[in-house]
Amino acid sequence: MAPRLSVLLTIGGGLEYVTGHRSESRALMVKSGQTDIVYNLDPASVELLKHADNVNVDSTLIPRTILIKLNAEQTALKDKRVRQALSLAIDRQGIANNILRVPGSEANQLFGPSFQQWHQAQLAPIERNLARAGRLLDDAGWRLAKDGLRYQHGQPLRLSMMTYANRPELIVIATAIQDQWRELGVDLQVSMENASAIPMAHVRGNLQTALIARNLGLLPDPLALLSTEFSDPQGGDWGPMNWHNTQVFNWVEQLEGSQDDAQSARLIRQITDEINADLPLIPVAYYVQQSAVSTRLNGFHFDPYERSFNLSSLTLANEQ
């Protein structure tokens, strides 16, 4: 079984590994000195532990992006301007600061800083711009009515969003987005499901939007991911859905066969530019691995790619 993992390490006369189901319990275990290392903490617990004298909180960016998966064949979402408007209506800074409690973790592109070649560091953060978002929707034919909702041909701009409970911050972010999109005139219905409902809805074609935390680093090179998910309209269970962009599909194919570094770099740039502009997926925030470490330990380092805690390099502070 793979619940949201929850592990505590107690280092003393040997090493003990305990699975604690609830984030609150794990936070209190390390705060009380019962354990030395705890990982996967919810934002509220991180805040609590930051004020504890006997605990250091280690925040490491990992190659996982919180993003909105879209069905690009849905009536409204097939229009790029609608996707852009929805992206502009999200207050990413607010989400990063107040929900994730990690300022600076807001995402402005699909691939985060962990993917050096695929991340465009010079890209400016996406600031919330409701006025521009509103103009984009106006241009797309979705007009604001007196009831505060936008309509096209008498149909309201109403969307559904799935998310899942294993990552506690997702439902909070989803409801924040619900509120932020409502200000734009979009009625969003949020439902919390088991994570498996998302690939199932993708296959059955009844998904509209889903808020997910996607691990983009499962394979060392994102090209493998692009080859399977960004190379045809079928997309991927956790990737794009019904997204038609033959330009990107061709570039991905060219990149697969490219032997020339300069050409590969150029293609990567073109692909990421187009993905960031066309928004088959709307990035929201980059994921930060929050670990709490007792101050009696020295040498803690979390490897975001191998997901290793480097236990062999740890020492007890009073043994030095």
């Binding site: 793979a2 088991n194 994570a195 498996s196 409902a197 199932m200 993708h202 499962l218 956790w238």
Partner: peptide
């Protein structure tokens, strides 16, 4: 509701990141 056992069991076995139509 949402009762597709194969997907649920796949999520239970392999975790969120690995649950897919193929796994189900």
């Amino acid at each position: 509701p949402g009762n597709d056992m194969a997907y649920r069991i796949a999520a239970g076995r392999y975790g969120d990141d690995a649950v897919s139509a193929a796994a189900a």
